[in-house]
Write a protein that binds this DNA or RNA. Structure first.
Lengths: 193, 193
DNA sequence: CGTCTATTTGAATGTACTCAAAAGCGGTGG
DNA sequence: CCACCGCTTTTGAGTACATTCAAATAGACG
């Protein structure tokens, strides 16, 4: 089991000492996920915090009309999970699907709670993690309520160059909240500049 | 200084014992804020986590064209602050303005860090606080990318009945990302149903 | 090469914005 | 008590942005 990526990841926050690393890694389970495989489906309770070692996931919701709306992408060294379902142990409204063959490390709720209770540092690190995720989401909301579709697309390219050349425009359109057809027209407009 | 509301507030999470309450309250400062007064302006570094005891605030951004976009409202027993500016000590792009005469309790960064370092419970409580804020923001993003303006407005009324009858439609429109004129037309449509 | 999916195109439609102006609604002072 | 002020809300016409639907084109992969 390759746990180095997650230890490196926490090194960016408050680095784990030897005991903390051991406590964490002994509770992780590694899984290999095929492309198009789901690690969460609507109706399931989200049982894990998932760290992406390799690959790419999208978390999305399906509305009443059957349309999919991408809430989040996660790639190497990112986290994915339905926090609402996880903490409140209620059925999720979301799907999490692998967009590439992937390798993940998962932590179950009792294990996470164990780490929270015994180690201030895990509380701290996960607090900082979610603070950063919160800040990013705030910026996305501001953009949603103030920018045109073209501005959103250009910003997405600049902020996520690694994602942008790895996933289809259909997926990006769904993340931005526009139709793929209109995104295509935006791209045509941009390329003629 | 009336600290009871903030102690009651934390009682909904992991309640503070006597020592923790004392450590917290001794670090809080109370302020009375007039209507239309700012507690943060663009360019300032956000120096406080602010708990609202009484009154109502809006946090907004001004774009290049001079238009305001409401990112968040906060009322009694809520928190407000620019977390990005606060943690990274960088100039804020946001304004926080009182929409009513208000009373707040403020915590400075060194004091918050002191609490984080010495008490697991503050780490835990603020982690849970932001987790919940994160969950709400995720739902807002999903709605932003999937719902019509009318759906967003109806949902806002249902989710925030207390706010909705307390602030102007101009402010609600700015929060939803539509023009006040168009919101008026939505209201006309709804009332004729 | 054929199949499957992603992307592009175009025409018609719908949703939301802009701008300008009118109407409504408190408050305040005469 | 009413007249006036400032601010919010409403209206309407014209325009811009984005969607829908159907079909053509282009790429990717076995």
């Amino acid at each position: 089991m390759n746990v180095q990526p997650i230890l490196d990841h926490f090194a960016n926050y408050a680095p784990l000492d030897e005991l903390e690393s051991k406590e964490l890694t002994s509770r992780l389970s590694e899984r290999t996920i095929k492309r198009k495989q789901f690690i969460l489906q609507e109706g399931d309770v989200c049982k894990h915090y998932t760290f992406v070692v390799e690959g790419c996931f999208r978390m999305y919701k399906v509305d009443k009309k059957g349309n999919e709306h991408n809430l989040q992408f996660s790639i190497e060294n990112g986290w994915v999970g339905d926090i609402d379902s996880f903490h409140n142990e209620k059925p999720s409204e979301l799907y999490i699907e692998a967009m590439e063959p992937s390798v993940i490390l998962q932590l179950e709720k009792p294990d996470l709670l164990y780490l929270y209770i015994h180690y201030l540092k895990f509380n701290r690190n996960f607090r900082v993690l979610i603070e950063n995720a919160f800040i990013s989401l705030q910026k996305r909301v501001l953009q949603n309520i103030s920018a045109t579709a073209e501005e959103k697309y250009v910003d997405f390219m600049n902020k996520h160059p690694n994602l942008f050349n790895r996933i289809s425009n259909v997926q990006i359109a769904s993340y931005l909240g526009v139709t793929p057809e209109f995104l295509s027209k935006i791209r045509r407009g941009l390329s003629s500049k």
